[in-house]
Amino acid sequence: MLYEALEAQARERLPQVVFDYFAGGSGEESTLADNTAAWARLRLRPRVLRDVSSVDTTTELLGSTLSSPVLVAPTAFHSLAHPDAELATAQGTREAGSLLVLSSRSSRRIEDVASHAGPWWFQVYVFRDRGLTRALVQRAAAAGARALVLTADTPYVGRKRRNRGDTSLPLSDEDFLANLEGLTHRALAEQAPDVTFADISRLSEDSGLPVLVKGVLRADDALECLHHGASGLIVSNHGGRQLDGALATADALPEIVSATEDRAPVLVDGGVRSGRDVLRALALGARAVLLGRPVLWGLATGGAAGVRQVLETLREDTAHTLALAGLSRLSAVGPDVLAPPRAP
């Protein structure tokens, strides 16, 4: 399996503290494990005798036409994985025809990454220094970001199971401060614990961009986000890195899709590792999925080419899975593709 092989290769190449930083989850890592297991619990009901001689995986999302419904999730400090850092990630994503969500904690300047990217969105933490947040989103808009992604599940950073002893990362001040011009104290770049739904419209006003909210696991929160102007939702538990014991994203997704009734696109991340998982997510009503750790492993093992290979391999696996399920296009995917849950 590509993911398992890539992870093993990345483990060999990266310092242990860096691998653990990327791979680890919070608490006892129960949510981290359940993210992957939850997709596998969903069984597929393939159709037969359909013409699948040609399978189309292209999709359109907030005005961007993409080669597949697989996007690159925001992850921090890519310089820890490869010397070319986010520049390589952006290039590989562009070459694969996908979309990059660039982290606020990028180790390369927004403008430099934008010059290597295809379509991209900018992930936002609302920092304790609100002026810093405003300046970042305005820079992102000026550099060509097509949307903002507000990470909403991180008022404080979850305590990780790994690295409890030595938590120091080989991260230079230059990498840490790449996008924090004028910062007088590192503490001001910590996430603000008083972020509310009102920040959604505030970010949109500051940037002139649509805002998606990432970290939603409940229908009532999803509806409140839309009420306050969100243009999309990302069902996410931060890759199992925040509240351990939170439900898997595959389990949270149906409730949110049902409640929002196509008022805005719903995306999902967490544990997606195969074309089967992509099909399952689409069948549950997601418009697209986001990929985090597999992209980091591709970056660590092959730079831009490694990122491109991860995305292209998953696109090809998605097309192959669609064909085996008797589906020739994404619009044909519906809830009937999934079998009813097994009786307890």
Results as ranks from 00 to 15, higher is better:
A178H: 14
V235P: 07
T58S: 15
E60D: 14
L150I: 11
A305P: 00
G240Y: 12
R293N: 11
G165W: 07
A5I: 03
E205F: 02
G285E: 09
Q9C: 02
G285M: 05
A325Y: 02
V257N: 10
T75P: 00
L99N: 09
L180K: 14
K214F: 08
G239P: 07
P210G: 10
G298S: 03
E29A: 05
L203E: 03
D336T: 12
T260M: 06
D175P: 03
V124L: 04
K160L: 13
A143M: 10
R186W: 14
H82I: 00
G271K: 13
R218F: 13
A152Y: 12
D317Y: 13
E29D: 07
V272W: 07
G306K: 08
L322Q: 04
G292K: 11
S168M: 10
G208K: 05
D244K: 10
E111T: 13
T151I: 07
I234E: 08
R287T: 03
S53E: 05
A304G: 09
I200Y: 09
A81P: 05
A304R: 12
H320I: 00
D220E: 15
A85L: 07
V307I: 11
L324I: 04
A5W: 02
P340S: 02
L314C: 05
G275S: 05
I110A: 09
T313H: 15
V268H: 07
T249D: 08
T57V: 06
G25V: 08
R164V: 06
A76W: 00
T93W: 09
T75A: 12
A142H: 04
V278C: 05
A222V: 04
L311H: 03
V126A: 11
T313R: 13
V48I: 15
A222N: 09
L71P: 05
G275I: 04
A8D: 04
G118C: 01
S107Y: 07
S68Y: 09
Y125L: 10
V113K: 10
L32K: 13
V211G: 11
G303V: 06
V195H: 04
L132T: 01
F197K: 02
V101W: 06
A23H: 15
P193Y: 02
L188K: 14
L66W: 10
R109D: 03
T154Q: 15
L223E: 14
S201T: 11
A192D: 15
A38F: 13
T58C: 14
G131D: 15
L14T: 07
A10Q: 08
F122T: 02
W297H: 12
A189E: 05
G182F: 08
A189Q: 08
G239L: 05
R276E: 15
S64R: 13
A283P: 04
R139E: 14
G63Q: 02
G292R: 11
T59V: 15
V333R: 06
V18E: 01
D336N: 11
E60T: 13
E86C: 13
S26V: 10
E312D: 15
E255N: 04
A259W: 09
A73T: 15
R41S: 14
W121L: 08
L330R: 01
P335A: 14
A248T: 11
E190F: 14
